[in-house]
Design a protein around this nucleic acid. Structure first.
Lengths: 192, 192
DNA sequence: TTGCGAAACCGACAATGTGTTGGTTTACTA
DNA sequence: TAGTAAACCAACACATTGTCGGTTTCGCAA
């Protein structure tokens, strides 16, 4: 959120309408094809009012994403605190279950219609827990190698989840979780 | 390319200037912040002329990507025909070497400044060779599981390469290739 | 080499979207 | 219930977009 406006019932309602409309529009078309005018008209909010709240469409989207990120982050911390800190596998399974439960918003934000910002921020979240992910892999003597593997694992996991959401969650959460776990553990090799 | 125009020295030149300018601009700013006007001014090409060749900026970008895809695809087929068809690992190593050699264009097209189209088309290319990739993995009885693993592997590989390009190719091609190979082979598990 | 035709240039057009502003109306809240 | 902040409204200057009809330039082929 860019513009700071007093927090009241009315402002909260207006913001929420704008946010919801943004998500609705993102179900139909991709970001660059959405205009402020059309959003306001569909949200039944005056265009001036929109600019009183946000700098532009990206700003609004960022706000929507932020809210989702907060939810995910909270769920994350929650799940990780519950499970044995050494048990990364359980955490992954729970995360997949969480995604399945909250598909509606995530489906839109993870799709290619929105920014890449959400994916980026999600990756940032995963980086904060990189030690748990590393745990799935055999420690390498070369720290660079670990970084490359982490990249592969995070992109792979997010890509897989995106595919999962795009295909209407055909696969079960357990199946997805297991795939992530299996694939995050590389085949051992003799080294270069 | 949308508009069909006779192939002549002049048209080829104009197209190439427009394409090059697009890539230049993409080095500075992302797609939605580029305008037709600015592109034409920088390319020193009349705006009408631009519209004689392309429907819009996306169209032009698509053209640029198409050319790159053609190159990559050709290199792909070339590499695969040279190497033992059962030897996927060698092919991956050669692909990484190819990327390192042609970094300049790929660096831009793979970045988040451009479309996601290029990534998508690149994935499509990989799908055509899914059997080679599958080869790296233990066959599963469940075809769905194979699909999920393929998703993970492809997204992981592309994400890793993107990271590699973004960080100015710090790692060596061999290192990247080896990481892809290692990570595409999942840890065995007892099944669900 | 020259001349024809296609392509590039030029200026202008309506249409659409963007931010911003000053003034009015509505509704929460103290 | 009165005051204030937020929402509405109308209008603005500005930029960009596609699309014209007309002119100039260039290159290929006779």
């Amino acid at each position: 959120m860019a513009k700071t406006l007093t927090e009241s019932r009315r402002t909260r309602y207006t913001r929420s309408v704008l946010q919801d409309t943004m998500v609705e529009l993102l179900r139909e078309k991709s970001m660059p094809h959405i205009t402020v005018s059309e959003l306001c008209s569909q949200a039944d909010v005056n265009r001036s009012t929109f600019y009183a709240h946000y700098d532009g469409l990206e700003d609004l989207l960022h706000d929507v994403e932020g809210e989702a990120i907060d939810h995910v982050s909270a769920a994350f911390d929650d799940l990780l605190s519950q499970s044995d800190p050494t048990d990364a596998e359980t955490a992954i399974r729970r995360i997949c279950a969480y995604i399945a439960d909250n598909r509606s918003h995530l489906q839109v934000l993870m799709s290619s219609r929105a920014d890449l910002d959400f994916q980026r921020r999600l990756m940032g979240l995963l980086y904060q827990h990189d030690d748990e992910i590393m745990q799935l892999q055999p420690a390498s003597n070369d720290p660079n190698e670990n970084r490359l593997r982490l990249q592969f694992a995070i992109h792979g996991a997010i890509g897989l989840i995106q595919y999962w959401l795009d295909t209407g969650l055909e696969a079960s959460p357990e199946q997805v979780a297991q795939t992530i776990i299996d694939m995050s553990m590389p085949k051992q090799h003799a080294g270069l």
